[in-house]
Design a protein around this nucleic acid. Structure first.
Lengths: 243, 243
DNA sequence: TGTGCCATAATGTGATCACATATTGCCATC
DNA sequence: GATGGCAATATGTGATCACATTATGGCACA
């Protein structure tokens, strides 16, 4: 059904949208991974995704290769594709990298923030709280990422944002699993502190708030999760391509 | 000449090498960019590269998309592809991101280094010195990157290395231009200090040495170069895809 | 002589086909 | 009944073709 007779239609759709098919596919898969809608270790196939999204295999291939470059998916030697599994060491590394990059990105963006941006961040912070209350994990995660991205993106053409988003893609699936397994009761909201630091343009306080936000909400969640994934990691295979 | 009758041959080559054509193309382009062999702003075309490397356009497309994801090339809205130009702000950002990631990666790798790895780093450090003396910029840059990568890669399956290499790809072309324009006389070699810190397993000293190595050798080089690229940046166009 | 417009060329995007290789399931054999 | 091997299937990779869109160069007109 994804075949010949829909070519004209899908091509027209592409043109009308003004965005390439590959871009749309990429965004779709990216969101699925970032919000943990695809369970780590689950196998993916180009043809399967092509059929599901009603496009040819080519945009899928290119989107998957982009995602592989970002570490969001893994191209194994035996021609299998999957969301990477994670080890406790890797989880710890991801957290350390997030702290290193996000604190620096926050401080560097501080000079560009205005009241409108602060207002937008307040909205996202409120949405995070709502997501916690209603146990809406999708909303919780999405609003949380949006909160941070809004701040870091204040600086135009930032080199930090793509790197940070790569880390989010790698850690996202496990945050989702963690939330589902142990519930959001352990999450600590440091967003108010971050917003205070931003309003005062206090660099050091912002650094501390960002680091606390990343660590407090994640560390013991991660440790809790590690046992769960230890078994799955046993069936691991050597990856073929990265960077 | 890149056409029909060579298909069988090139395909056989691919199979025999055990590595995909796309991977080979990617590595080749990557090295060219990292060592600054392609001047920033110069236009690239899929068909042109395909002809030059004697492959079809498909591996080129995928390699370029990978490189675009890493920020090594830029896909413009008008269907042009090029090595990104750089602004002084962006150069400063890249340096800050390098310091944040590489100091952390160095410290985290410290627990995994052994004598063999130190010996390898000493070789690269010596090769850097030789590159400086002989004005061999390719060698200088390659050995310098190898020195750092050897250290960071001591930790197996590091999440830092891909991020750091993305930064190298973005800053590499300008390091090369800088070396060519002002000569290597201003480069300061901090590798000996880093090696001392590593032998003593001194985290703080290693952090300081790495940061000094990145900043001292680069900062004024970068500033010197900015004027040169200010004009070229005027003809800039909005990029279409990133991350 | 300068400027706007149109035809031609060039380029990235997507679809489809061919192929080598890895996986999987079945069957014969011990 | 268990196991090793073989055939069938599935999958990623690469090539080739068609198409929409952009860039470019020349020509007419003011």
């Amino acid at each position: 059904m994804s075949g010949t007779k829909e070519n004209a239609a899908s091509k027209a759709d592409t043109s009308n949208d003004g965005v390439t098919v590959q871009q749309r596919v990429y965004n779709e898969l990216r969101t699925d991974i970032l919000l943990g809608r695809i369970v780590p270790g689950a196998p993916l196939t180009i043809r399967g995704l092509a059929e599901r999204l009603n496009v040819s295999s080519m945009p899928i291939r290119e989107a998957l290769r982009r995602l592989a470059t970002e570490g969001a998916v893994e191209l194994l030697e035996n021609r299998r594709i999957r969301i990477p599994l994670i080890s406790p060491e890797r989880f710890d590394d991801l957290l350390a990298a997030r702290v290193a990059l996000e604190t620096e990105a926050a401080v560097r963006a501080l000079g560009y923030v205005d009241d409108a941006l602060i207002a937008k961040m307040e909205e996202y912070a409120a949405e995070v709280d709502e997501g916690v209350e209603t146990r809406d994990y999708d909303r919780w995660l999405a609003a949380n990422f949006a909160f941070h991205r809004t701040l870091y993106s204040a600086q135009p053409d930032s080199v930090f944002v793509p790197l940070i988003e790569s880390l989010w893609l790698q850690i996202g699936p496990f945050l989702r699993q963690a939330l589902v397994h142990i519930g959001p009761d352990y999450t600590i909201d440091r967003h108010a502190e971050a917003l205070d630091a931003i309003r005062l343009r206090n660099r050091m306080a912002l650094r501390i708030a960002i680091e606390a936000d990343l660590r407090d909400g994640i560390t013991h969640i991660g440790n809790e999760l590690m046992r769960f994934n230890a078994a799955a990691a046993a069936e691991d295979r050597k990856p073929r391509k990265r960077s």
